[in-house]
Design a binder for these strands. Structure first.
Lengths: 120, 120
DNA sequence: GCATTCGACAACCAATCGGTTGACAACGGT
DNA sequence: ACCGTTGTCAACCGATTGGTTGTCGAATGC
């Protein structure tokens, strides 16, 4: 869990935490509110919130005894940038591969597939 | 780790597995090829590939003794759909909130709100 | 036929995770 | 000035994770 991307993906790999994020898209909430729907203790939810906070997905402020939790949706961008980048790469690759296959099929090109292996 | 989304997020929460995915966007590779750049055993990489396979992110076929690994980039959609859905919800929410605040602050807010992301 | 190569499976280990309970800090209401 | 409410911290527990080593199976090359 070294970098931010690890923390974000790990945070969202838990269904309870994903559910908390979803509920926070409706607006800020207190720890108690967030814990209410689950069969687990408030402490467990507090731990989940800590994970989300360390991933940068939520922030907590203070309002009397309450600690309102706020969703920082901007962190989603970290993931979408990563995903879209490599999805695009993959699509280009397959597009090219399709092209190569079509060529091989059509002209029986003599040149072989590049096979450039992963940059050492 | 009940549903597919959990498995995909969890699979990508490990930097080695993310790196493997990235390298597979360059094309299929064997387990040995994939293991080469890392200081870990081939077995460890094989385990990572099993996790990626169970998440639906890769498939493995057979070619002689080799087991070429292939990226199934379509699974990215699972995540992007989830992320974009709730990102949109969050933005709507904050957009509305911004609107309210702007109204309270300045009744004649006819001009374009900057919509800065400020992530305070 | 036989050794080799590539990779999976099983058993094990330390570390982490999600959960618990108990204690306690911070604040507000009365 | 207390008590109740709200939430965090700390210690602990069982399950899972990421890694190791050893073994073995499948397919090829000689």
């Amino acid at each position: 869990m070294t970098d931010a991307l690890c923390r974000v993906f790990a945070a969202l790999s838990d269904p309870t935490r994903r559910d908390i994020v979803v509920r926070l898209t409706d607006g800020d909430a207190t720890v108690g509110d967030l814990a209410a729907p689950y069969a687990v203790s408030v402490q467990a939810v507090s731990k989940h919130l800590k994970v989300l906070e360390e991933a940068g997905l939520v922030t907590r402020s203070r309002d009397a005894q309450r600690r309102p939790v706020h969703l920082e949706a901007g962190v989603f961008d970290l993931m979408t940038v990563w995903i879209e980048r490599y999805r695009r790469r993959a699509e280009e690759r397959y597009g090219r591969l399709d092209g190569v296959l079509a060529q091989l099929n059509d002209e029986q090109t003599e040149s072989e597939a590049p096979q450039e292996e992963t940059a050492s």
